[in-house]
Write a protein that binds this DNA or RNA. Structure first.
Lengths: 178, 178
DNA sequence: TGTCAATATGCAAATAGTTGCATAAAAAAA
DNA sequence: TTTTTTTATGCAACTATTTGCATATTGACA
């Protein structure tokens, strides 16, 4: 149940509503964990029932009541416990490589897809670089907890740079293959 | 339904049984797409029903009948069609980064996990390097279709090298953070 | 001779994730 | 002034993946 732990990590950094968490997952956390708002609301409900979260209701006129979740003592204990449990590394699982595997059936289509992906990776890399230059310009001066968050951004940078380089390498190889 | 297309790619390269495919997914294809035998048997059944695969029964005395699947004309058409459809790139989704995000709660546990993952990535890299030096020693001399497969192995190498380098970089950063 | 690993197949249940739909008001843009 | 976007929530259905169980033979090891 890694989504639950990702939500614990996010809410421990700062309490928030389902909506705010969805935003956060689109920005910094989405770098390494993705979740839709439907998934998040459902999981928050479960976690609150389990006692990992408590919620404070903030009624608003006209709009639905804001439900602000924060991590309970049990929730923090669960997060700490999970931090100590060994987990298998993320495995590569990529459609594009399945396509490349069968690439001899249509090299031109695979080349086009590689070019498209190359551009998407370049975009994402640029976004991360802008974030690193902006919010994290002086990582040493950040509060301790945010220095750890900065290290996750560096993973994103490394990941995107790697794919960009691999796309280039593979496009060259395809050219030579003809 | 990417598993179906991965199976089409594998069976188009060479027909086989569910069991053989499970082996293949553990070796070369498992590099970028993982599937359990349960998943594979079920999917093969669906695909055969759909007309993408045909099966040849090879009764064996004592053992269950071997079901050898091969790709039909419709199956190949489906594979070719899929090759042309744009797909989003693989996104990073990693427990370890969730842990690092919340790392201030227990830096020692995160450091231990990074060291463990570093070793696992080094192992996998060594396996890929051995495969590259063995089966793919002279990639230029391979049949055309296998040159594409070689390019997927190069992706695996690139991926593991990147994680190894990132683990080292992050371990250093953690040391400085104290 | 008994046990264990490998070969070879598959069902069922649980968990996780995606997609489609639905509501409803405020604020901003056309 | 009408439309679109943003804020804010959630259910239901579907697809995908994982985990646990189940069967049954061959060949190797102890």
């Amino acid at each position: 149940m890694a989504l639950a732990h990702a939500l614990l990590a996010a809410l421990h950094q700062e309490p928030g509503t389902g909506y705010e968490l969805t935003r956060r997952f689109e920005l910094s956390m989405g770098n390494f964990w993705q979740a839709s708002h439907q998934q998040i609301y459902r999981e928050l409900g479960r976690m609150a029932q389990q006692g990992w979260l408590e919620l404070q209701l903030q009624p608003q006129q006209g709009k639905p009541t804001r439900k602000v979740y924060s991590v309970t003592t049990e929730g923090l204990a669960a997060l700490r416990d999970w931090l100590q449990q060994p987990q298998p590394p993320a495995v590569l699982r990529d459609d594009l490589l399945v396509k490349l595997y069968a690439g001899a059936e249509n090299p031109a289509a695979v080349q086009a897809e590689l070019l498209r992906h190359r551009a998407l990776h370049a975009d994402k890399l640029a976004t991360y670089q802008a974030l690193a230059a902006g919010c994290f310009a002086c990582p040493q001066d950040l509060p301790r907890a945010e220095q750890f968050i900065y290290l996750t951004l560096r993973a994103g940078l490394s990941y995107e740079r790697q794919w960009l380089a691999w796309c280039d390498e593979t496009l060259s190889a395809l050219q030579e293959l003809g």
